[in-house]
């Protein structure tokens, strides 16, 4: 296993994702002799995991079963231990595409935080690119280094423990892209500019508040960035449900009912929706939005240095 390469079978030392069902999962570090407790019973790593194929179903001691999945940055984002607020895959997707990242890109990032975005960036720039990430919190920087080592991607990333607003990224004229997720990004724009390649590159700043965006945009303009563009992306998830709605009793005779104009009662349309006359209901499939959704994560401001 590695976060940058697929493997077929589970090996000692791998990080694997235990999938319990319906968005409930957690990561495990696979180790000989170790056991993991789940609500379906115990998983013994030596016998239940090591040597098995990723994606297989593992039966636990209580007879329940779980799936073991190959780690990906996206699964890691959903399961990582939070040390800070993290970026989720919806924003990460947009950042990756709008920063024009691809294998071989050199990226600067600050702060590292919990490493949610870092894993995604490393995945995209591997095997020839590199990530320079700066985190001013010493413990978090240490923890991130440790994780990158465990996940087999340490050769693709350099973690620096310093203040990006004061000391910059520790590199200059090498980056194709810079990403900022710090409270005062406008103070780091100058450093970002010098970290970017002389021939240009892209920059992105993530801020939850519009006041931060405003100051950042001004700073970007001041430093000669062009194509400044602010956007926001929201994810809507739908539950797939079969819904049945009752037909109101309008006091009409049963014969009348059968001739009511429900197109969907045609056999040709079955499967999409159907009328059940005996119960007086109409059934159909629907994508129902979740009751609550994430309404705001942050504004993404992009710009180009040319």
């Amino acid at each position: 296993m590695s976060f940058v390469e697929y493997g077929d079978t589970i090996k000692n030392g791998d990080t694997a994702i235990v999938f319990l069902g319906h968005e409930s999962m957690f990561p495990v570090k696979v180790q000989h002799g170790n056991v993991t407790q789940t609500k379906y019973g115990v998983i013994r790593h030596s016998t239940d995991l090591i040597g098995k194929k990723y994606g297989s179903r593992v039966t636990c001691s209580k007879g329940g079963w779980v799936y073991i999945l190959h780690p990906t940055p996206e699964l890691w984002t959903m399961n990582l231990p939070h040390r800070t607020q993290i970026l989720y895959s919806t924003d990460i997707s947009m950042i990756t595409m709008m920063l024009e990242l691809k294998p071989g890109s050199i990226v600067c990032e600050s702060g590292t935080g919990s490493g949610s975005l870092s894993h995604a960036l490393i995945r995209t720039v591997a095997p020839t690119g590199h990530l320079y990430t700066v985190e001013f919190h010493q413990q978090r920087a240490e923890k991130a280094r440790e994780e990158f080592r465990e996940h087999g991607v340490e050769h693709l990333v350099t973690v620096t423990n310093q203040d990006v607003c004061k000391n910059g990224f520790g590199v200059s004229n090498v980056a194709d892209a810079v990403f900022l997720d710090i409270p005062s990004p406008w103070e780091a724009i100058g450093h970002a500019k010098s970290a970017l390649k002389a021939e240009g590159g892209r920059i992105c700043s993530f801020s939850p508040c519009i006041e931060q965006v405003q100051r950042t945009c001004l700073a970007m303009e001041e430093y000669g960035f062009t194509e400044i563009n602010t956007l926001e992306i929201l994810l809507r998830v739908y539950n797939v449900r079969t819904i049945s709605l009752q037909i109101p009793d309008l006091g009409k005779a049963a014969e009348d009912n059968s001739s009511t104009s429900f197109d969907c009662s045609n056999p040709s349309n079955q499967g999409i929706s159907c009328v059940n006359l005996q119960q007086g209901t109409v059934q159909f499939k629907s994508g129902v939005p979740l009751r609550e959704m994430v309404g705001h994560t942050g504004y993404l401001t992009f710009a180009t240095k040319s």
């Binding site: 519009i210 956007l231 926001e232 809507r236 739908y238 797939v240 994508g287």
Partner: peptide, 18 residues
Amino acid sequence: VINLKLSETWLRNYQVLP
């Protein structure tokens, strides 16, 4: 298959000027 998810994204662009 597991972890099936049906989703959609909304995109909103902003004008940012003083």
